[in-house]
Design a protein around this nucleic acid. Structure first.
Lengths: 150, 150
DNA sequence: CTTCCTGCAAAACATTTGCAGACTT
DNA sequence: AAGTCTGCAAATGTTTTGCAGGAAG
């Protein structure tokens, strides 16, 4: 994790972006909440503890930058705001299981979509660089206690 | 298509929703643009020709209703607005190919994701009701004329 | 007739932007 | 010192909502 951080700093440095305390705390928020899917506002709230003067606009600008640098991935779960997660550096893809009842998002690792990419390219001429797969349904918890919703 | 429309009217009627001229023209906009991915504003513009007094709020409310009734599906291609398409009544799934250069969205039909759904359910206890798969990359047109972007 | 629907205008949100000052390098 | 980065506030763009009148069943 510490090495991941250094790696990202290097990426910033290589492209002549400055390493500011604001960018540092935002990055740390993601490293400390690795398997969360944070929204801009959530990042803002986490980060305000360590850096109370930070502005929400800075958070948005930093998130955009990190998406540009492929450090973060932007995802939309249909709840009206963008969410962000640390990018898959390796080619290991994971997919999202979105509970339509409680809204919780789980993850599921699986690499076996490459064959489909090949098929798509062959049939359409579309050169694929990434994919995003979401499953909608009912998570185990909601199946067991159907009354709960959040 | 005419039968599809009747089917939808029946669905509205069965749930005690009224069949208003506004709802009719909105539905027709989708039937006449079957393989488009219309945004609320696009629907509004199409529909204003036939029903000039319609309000944008009505379009939004109708789209919400139709999504609720599973007539439409809401999709987000990351362009800052929700888009809608006629739902897959049958189980025939199609996926979206989103060009990261020009923004065009193509479709690709493929049913072979069921095995993955079974795997997910088995491993996580998540009961899947739907899935959404998006591929990002470069469409054939952009590969052939790389300068173009819209 | 009763209840649901609609149009309008205003409100609510998430996100972006202009700008002057502050900070990284 | 030079140029980038930031916080603030205002602007933007999409979607939602309150309300009083209007229409569908």
């Amino acid at each position: 994790m510490e090495e991941h951080l250094q790696e990202i700093y290097k990426k910033l440095h290589d492209r002549d972006y400055k390493i500011t305390p604001q960018r540092r705390v935002i990055l740390k928020a993601f490293l400390n909440n690795a398997r969360e899917h944070l929204s801009a506002e959530e990042v803002y709230n986490i980060v305000k503890d360590q850096y109370p003067d930070i502005g929400l606009a800075t958070v948005y600008r930093t998130l955009d930058l990190l998406v540009d640098l492929d450090v973060l991935q932007r995802i939309n779960f249909g709840d009206g705001r963008a969410r962000y997660e640390l990018g898959h550096r390796d080619e290991h893809h994971h997919h999202h299981l979105i509970c339509v009842n409680c809204g919780r998002v789980e993850e599921f690792d699986h690499d076996l979509l490459e064959f489909l990419e090949l098929l798509v390219t062959e049939k359409t001429g579309f050169r694929i660089t990434d994919h995003q797969l979401k499953f909608y349904g009912y998570c185990r918890r909601c199946r067991e206690t159907p009354q709960e919703a959040e």
